[in-house]
Design a protein around this nucleic acid. Sequence first.
DNA 1: CTTGGAGTGTCAACAAGACTGACATATTAT
DNA 2: ATAATATGTCAGTCTTGTTGACACTCCAAG
Lengths: 168, 168
Amino acid sequence: MSEPANRNSGESLLFLTDEQLRKGIEAMFFAYRGFTADPDRILADMAYGRAHHRAIHFIRRSPGTTVNNLLTILGVTKQSLNRVLRTLIEDGLVESRVGRRDKRERHLYLTERGADLEGQLSDAQRERMRAAYRAAGPAAVAGFRQVLEAMMDPEIRHHYDRLKDGSS
Amino acid sequence: MSEPANRNSGESLLFLTDEQLRKGIEAMFFAYRGFTADPDRILADMAYGRAHHRAIHFIRRSPGTTVNNLLTILGVTKQSLNRVLRTLIEDGLVESRVGRRDKRERHLYLTERGADLEGQLSDAQRERMRAAYRAAGPAAVAGFRQVLEAMMDPEIRHHYDRLKDGSS
DNA sequence: CTTGGAGTGTCAACAAGACTGACATATTAT
DNA sequence: ATAATATGTCAGTCTTGTTGACACTCCAAG
């Protein structure tokens, strides 16, 4: 193929072979396995799974969020989320309060016990993230976030951006 | 909280708050959704799922790989993989050849039809990866890979490193 | 005030894809 | 010969996702 010999450095560095992209795809696959490994190990001992982890993560992140909002963020059906929420509420990890303005809505909060579990799971996951950040260095971390953000669907990106940012 | 006012820049930039790490965790979660979205859409029309995609990806990557090897890379049980492989072989997307040195082993190859599907799925996934790489720039891509690699379990990292690298 | 629609909860049925455990069969290594 | 390895398969379970249907509460528009 007739690739021009000289271009500016930005463009030439952005000539990406299929093999380079493939390696990036594999990095995502393997890294995600590591990313979920620690919480999964903790959850395996209890009657909970990854879905419960996700629910309590985002409830802790946005206390008082509604079921519908959580639905959108998690990208699952209400039936699927409801099963998870029901067990968490029954077990006393999550509290569901009827909305005062709109009584159809349920606002979700972690109980003390729920916050305990969330902390335990988050600690494990953050520890791995922290170790990876330290190993890679600050510049790498910035790049990491940039690429991940560019990989999100625009709608999802919108929800992501609305979550409190810890970069300040 | 007696943080020394002056440290070297590397250390001070590596002081990571829980909120910063939390944001990174969420970035992984949302980005992985985008990462799998395109192949999932294609597969939804067929009788295949994400598990089939993973299998043919790594068969295409390491033609002639054995069942046991694939098992380790994918991190699933042989029963789980066998179900997937069986359908792929029955449908003529994957060929299983008895090993010539060790006749217990089965070496796996994509057929022409299998390679077609693999290409279709990979094209979609690579396109998103390429777009994200372009949007973030070359420096970000390097950091992205560094952090992901540091996040992998050491054993898995070993398998990852052994796959052909496209960075040359 | 009635009616329509939105937000929520719940029931039932189902499917993908993971798991464990047990067992069969070749084949190779000791 | 015997033990270990590589694979395949059957049976059962679990988590987590899906559709579809239906009821209830509440808000807002007519």
